[in-house]
């Protein structure tokens, strides 16, 4: 069994703990910048832009937010930091949208394919998803189609044990498409409700590895009509602007249905995801907030945006 790390904090505690430090940055800086100013000068806007960039929003997205503030300044009075903060939040929510985007799992055997660069949190996310649906009484099968990384299959098998999901996997070096084929066949035969495919991490620049994913997608589509019903890109919230290029390439090659943002239990805000949503129109569906079975949540735009400032919805100044 997994040994417990020494005084490991729960994720909410860690979150709050992390925020007690970062709180000083965004909200407090914003307040500091705006307080006592008679007018919002270009210098102040520059500083606000820096705050946005510090949350990984990137130059372009930050600029659209600043443009919005500038335009609103002409229309109405934004003079205290609270109204500016609200203005920023408004604009960001416009971009992300406030619709809840659950996973589409209505098919008899719904197939979720999980992709992303190395170490992003794919396998862990799959473990958490399996746990979530098994707990709901659904039958879940996992396909260990990461046949490249050492011990990847064993890693997924442990998550299978934890959640009670079945795992189809062979030895390292096996053909990932063959694993997908066999897993799809097994899922149908066992009457599984959900099949989740774990794929090997890969950088979007590796053409042959992207081809491999396309093939896996074709194979599962041939076994189960309409599959995959979800093609999720896992993004590590600590990733910077490269995430946009990653998402672009994965979307172009694999036609994604949504994003999963992991490691939001750290101090990273995942602001780069906003630019991705804006450019590609893909919804963020899930967030990862820790390494435990329960540390997966549905994405909530309000919460996410206010976390850029506070981290938690109810934490007000």
């Amino acid at each position: 069994m997994k040994p417990k790390p020494p005084n490991k904090l729960g994720w909410t505690k860690r979150l709050r703990h992390g925020l007690s430090k970062t709180r000083h940055s965004f909200v407090h800086n914003l307040e500091r910048i705006v307080r006592g100013q008679r007018a919002i000068t270009p210098e102040i806007l520059d500083e606000i832009e820096e705050l946005l960039i510090s949350a990984d929003l990137g130059v372009n997205t930050s600029q659209t937010v600043i443009d919005y503030i500038q335009q609103e300044l002409k229309r109405r009075e934004l003079k205290d930091y609270l109204s500016i903060k609200n203005g920023i939040q408004e604009r960001l929510l416009q971009i992300i949208g406030t619709n809840h985007n659950g996973l589409n799992l209505t098919a008899t055997t719904a197939v979720i394919m999980v992709l992303g660069v190395n170490g992003g949190g794919k396998t862990t996310t799959i473990g958490k998803l399996a746990y979530r649906y098994q707990k709901q009484g659904k039958k879940v099968v996992l396909a260990a189609a990461d046949t490249f990384r050492a011990a990847a299959v064993e890693q997924l098998k442990i998550w299978g044990q934890r959640s009670g999901a079945g795992v189809i996997g062979y030895q390292t070096g096996a053909d990932p498409s063959a694993v997908v084929y066999d897993a799809a066949t097994a899922a149908k035969a066992r009457g599984a409700d959900i099949l989740i495919i774990d794929t090997a991490g890969r950088l979007h620049t590796k053409k042959n590895l992207m081809e491999e994913l396309k093939k896996m997608k074709r194979v599962v589509g041939r076994c189960i009509p309409g599959a995959p019903h979800e093609t999720l890109l896992v993004l590590d919230a600590t990733t910077g602007q490269n995430a946009i290029i990653q998402a672009r390439q994965f979307h172009q090659d694999l036609e994604l249905s949504g994003l999963v943002l992991t490691k939001l239990d750290g101090t990273a805000k995942g602001g780069v995801a906003i630019g991705i949503v804006a450019e590609l129109g893909l919804p963020i569906k899930l967030i990862g907030v820790g390494e435990g079975l329960d540390d997966l949540q549905d994405f909530d735009a309000q919460e996410f945006v206010s976390a850029l400032f506070y981290g938690e919805d109810n934490e007000k100044d």
Partner: peptide, 17 residues
């Protein structure tokens, strides 16, 4: 790394290689 599932195994396999 006794925490992440199969982490030790991963290292061991690489060492064998």
């Amino acid at each position: 790394d006794p925490y992440r599932p199969a982490a030790a195994q991963q290292l061991n396999l690489l060492a064998q290689q």
